[in-house]
Design a protein around this nucleic acid. Sequence first.
DNA 1: ATGGTTGTGTTACAA
Length: 257
Amino acid sequence: MKIASWNVNSIKARLPRVTEWLQEFSPDVVMLQELKCIDENFPFMEIEDLGYNLSVHGQKSYNGVAILSKHPIEDVMIGLPGDENDEQARYIEATIKTVRIGGLYLPNGNPLPGPKFDYKLAWMDRLIVRAKELLAQEEMFILGGDYNCCPKDEDCYDPIRLAGDALMQPETRDRYFTLLNLGLTDALRQFYPSGHNYTYWDYQGGAWQKDNGLRIDHLLLSPQAADRLVKCGIDRVPRGKERASDHTPIWCELDID
DNA sequence: ATGGTTGTGTTACAA
């Protein structure tokens, strides 16, 4: 079963890129982030016509997450628990076959210090709580998406230049590594233990052409899912196309029916 | 070099 995550930076602007990629790559499950549209405006038909079921958690202009699946989507949970006043559409969780899938769009957190960075850290604390709850069930799960976190300096093309960015802060990294220390596995690093494996390139300054990227999209696996991990990779092809998202898909394959 | 790009939805804000 192929499971992917992609921050599309507007599903409406990206629909041609998304549909061609679904047909070429044929993932079983996809977590999408930054839909930038309300549920009613999501292009359901165009994606359902390709054989995908859909669960969408949209929002006007900003954020928005979805899960696509060739298999039935069950027990959908909208929103990350822990703050009833949080109205940003950044989390969706559902069960597909025997795997619990959590699709997330972690807050960017810039500028810092300030309320946006505080919100990011609080959101990460809530994600840690949710990860603990899922781990207690001792079943297969994946927490995937745009984490807006460069775990290490090697995950950034110029760590000096971006040292002040929220994606690089020790407080951000500490919380990311707390997730790993709970027992989650960074799927990509199982196959590419070190080096540059970027998933995001800024639109500005020819970042893509210069390979000035960041590794900020991650697939974190529960121990039961990691036991079935066959392969993981980053598909750079969509980033090089016309009208591309600034992110490109990350995917993994699990050995399950 | 205090800029640059893309998207939403109105011309400001987020990334």
